[in-house]
């Protein structure tokens, strides 16, 4: 083992100079009990900053749209492209973020896409296309997608039953659109509600105990 005369201490490993005071060591080196680990620079912080900046820009873009007016005559091609790019970027960010938890990611996408479509509909003069078509179709597709996911992708126990039932719960919401007469074409909403109710009924019958267990765990007080 090498020694540092200034510190009067033995220095383990293959140091040429004392790691404490920098003085030249003397004696024979001994095997290092600690490995030399190359420096690693994580891109996580950079990615986090990029995501936050992106989200801030997207939120700003959506807010600015309000000031630019919400009549069809005020909503030109430029604003469509602008909003389209923002929406695409938002969906991409969410898809990347939710890639490890597909069921949860799907639910989040359904919520975001539904809200963006409704807002877009409002900005273009409110023709009810969002509530008549976009929201029910997105919800129904998500319910079917989650059913396919459950059969094809390995998932953590309880994950599907929670997000599957939440998505199906969201799928019942179009019944409100129907009852309040907010839709121009009732078929998509009716199909969505039917699919949602059927899915919920199947989940209750087949996995009611598991649902209670999972929700009890996640909402535990």
């Amino acid at each position: 083992m090498r020694r540092c005369a200034a510190c009067a201490a033995g220095i383990e490993g293959e140091w040429d100079r004392c790691p404490l005071c920098g003085a030249q060591l003397f004696g024979h080196p001994s095997p290092d009990p600690l490995p030399s680990v190359p420096l690693r620079f994580s891109r996580r912080r950079l990615l986090r900053i990029l995501v936050l900046v992106s989200l801030a820009l997207i939120a700003l873009s959506f807010v600015v749209q309000l000031w630019l007016g919400h009549r069809p005559s005020q909503f030109g091609a430029e604003r469509s492209v602008w909003l389209g790019v923002c929406t695409m970027w938002l969906v991409t960010l969410m898809a990347v973020r939710g890639r490890r938890h597909l069921a949860r990611g799907t639910l989040q996408l359904v919520v975001v896409i539904s809200l963006v479509c409704t807002y877009w509909d409002y900005l273009t003069g409110w023709n009810s296309w969002s509530l008549s078509f976009a929201v029910p179709i997105v919800c129904a597709c998500a319910i079917v997608a989650l059913a396919i996911l459950e059969q094809t992708v390995r998932h953590e126990a309880g994950e599907h039953v929670v997000y599957g039932s939440l998505t199906a719960g969201l799928g019942i919401v179009p019944i409100v659109f129907l009852l309040l007469g907010w839709v121009t074409t009732p078929i998509p909403s009716a199909i969505c509600v039917a699919v949602a109710l059927l899915t919920l009924a199947m989940l209750f019958v087949e996995r009611g105990g598991e649902m209670r267990h999972e929700f009890g765990k996640r909402l535990h007080l």
């Binding site: 083992m1 540092c4 510190c7 009067a8 201490a9 033995g10 220095i11 383990e12 490993g13 140091w15 004392c18 790691p19 404490l20 290092d32 009990p33 600690l34 490995p35 030399s36 680990v37």
Partner: peptide, 9 residues
Amino acid sequence: VPVRVAAAR
């Protein structure tokens, strides 16, 4: 007190 030092780089 005799001391041995091992430091990680």
